[in-house]
Design a protein around this nucleic acid. Structure first.
Lengths: 199, 199
DNA sequence: ACCTGAACACCGTTCAAGT
DNA sequence: ACCTGAACACCGTTCAAGT
């Protein structure tokens, strides 16, 4: 006696529903709370059904990571293409931190595994897309004479790493919620001066 | 027919052996390859024996994380207390990256969980110890007039975050092995200029 | 093509019982 | 105090069989 909605033999789009539900579970219970069998139960489908869409559990986790990178890439889309370099740097940094705070388990998952150029090609491409906007911002800052010259990829990745590290510290609780603003400001300040053209 | 060394009823120091073996397994096979039952088998002990020393699997993982933080704190000990600020900054940064490259799964474990001031008191204390040397370095740089004024804790954490983020990128393969040196140099450069007293 | 149901090997955790 | 052995509930994965 339960109010499970009846399901036809053909599921609407089991793959998409699995991903969606998995992301919700990830947010609520972390990676450890994620089980293929429970996921199947939640969707009213047999425990073997997910294997039609994901070879194994790792494949589901990888797909989730891809979703994460694409969502991260999308967040930057909201960063207005106008404004000073400093304003846009602030906006990008805040977007990254907001994403990290809203999706701590997902962010951890995104960088949890070693991706090689061969086996993790898709993943590396997704990382590339997620970092396109910040790196373009570096190039733009250089064009405006506000950022030191050099390979924008190399400079950009090091700068994003500062945000990623801060995200990790916040996610682990080492930087407490009440100190996040001050920490973010400090990181942005260090980046601002660290990226300036040298005299 | 196996060459398992005979074991007396009383184990020498099962807790220490479990930790040691777990760290080795972590290095070889990652967190996913870590099983309490397999660990017990490796040590020739019943699968229920570990529970006398670690309440549950998470307790073992937490203990491993503590080991990690203490090892990290120890690495800095090898950073000579002499030399210019710049030399010591380089040494600390390299120590952090070396640790990350040698212990990728352990480093991930160290920041995998949310530690609150109440439940994760021990862990937060361990993080504090691991970051004592880098933060003292910031204070020393300030005393020498080579680092911008301000709370050394706030400044130091943001600076360490840049290293932690780089470590994450290296560990995930997004920064490939051949680019680690260039990336580390770039991060150190950005830190050097980002930490300088402002004009 | 897509899903089910049973089967298999493996977990983590608990607990009475042994020494 | 420390460990064992059995038991329990839960996994992930595979595969013949169903529609």
């Amino acid at each position: 006696m339960s109010f499970v909605r009846s399901r036809s033999y053909h599921h609407g789009d089991l793959r998409a529903e699995l991903l969606q539900r998995a992301e919700a579970t990830l947010r609520d219970s972390g990676v450890d709370g994620l089980s293929l069998r429970q996921l199947a139960r939640d969707l009213g489908v047999s425990h073997a059904a997910p294997s039609r869409h994901f070879r194994d559990k790792q494949a589901l986790l990888d797909a989730l990571a891809l979703v994460g990178f694409d969502r991260l890439a999308g967040l930057y889309g909201e960063v207005e293409a106008t404004g000073s370099f400093s304003e846009r740097l602030h906006a990008v940094a805040r977007s990254y931190l907001d994403f990290a705070i809203d999706n701590p388990a997902l962010l951890a998952l995104m960088f949890a595994r070693k991706h090689s150029p061969t086996s993790g090609e898709e993943m590396l491409a997704a990382v590339g897309r997620a970092f396109t906007v910040p790196i373009a911002l570096i190039a733009e800052g250089q064009a405006r004479g506000e950022v030191v010259t050099g390979d924008p990829m190399r400079i950009g990745i090091a700068a994003i790493a500062a945000l990623q590290g801060l995200a990790t510290f916040v996610g682990s609780g080492f930087v407490e919620a009440e100190n996040v603003e001050a920490a973010l400001t400090e990181t942005i300040t260090q980046l601002t001066y660290g990226l300036r053209p040298r005299d």
